[in-house]
Amino acid sequence: MLNVGKIEEGFVLDHIPAGKSMSIYYHLGLDKLDCTVAIIKNAKSNVMGKKDIIKVECDINTLDMDVLAVIDHTITVNVIKDAVIVEKKQLTLPLEITGIMKCHNPRCITSIEQELPHIFYLADADRELYRCRYCDEKNTERF
């Protein structure tokens, strides 16, 4: 059994579906941080069978909750202070998100004006459906 030590201050992303941690690592920009980051893959889970966990030893405010929610809003976010969990944050789907998904509609204005930000809005929360703000095409990207 592999042991990864406790962190003093930071956050732990738990209950990540197995295999998704590297995608989260890059989309959250954790590769650009100068602090300690531990990625645990395929850990045993009673509920999920296998799960991934990410531990990050830095200020919780560096975490973009909206991006994480879009990737998977069922992930548990534990905030750690003095090596204990002080808060469990709930992720909610943001109403609008910029720069995470790309519109692939060849008829969309974003296909010819490269500098435009790719903005998506939450069209259907039950179906977790986002649509492009410019052309209303639905997002098909999976993380």
Binding site: N105, R107, I109, I112, R133, Y134, C135
Partner: peptide, 27 residues
């Protein structure tokens, strides 16, 4: 009017006058 979908919306977000979408592609 613009063949690309969403072009009038881009215009509206940078405009200081009212913009009317007179047709943007099949949108």
């Amino acid at each position: 009017r613009h063949p690309k979908e969403g072009a009038p919306m881009v215009a509206a977000s940078h405009s200081t006058i009212p913009v009317i979408n007179a047709g943007d592609g099949g949108h």
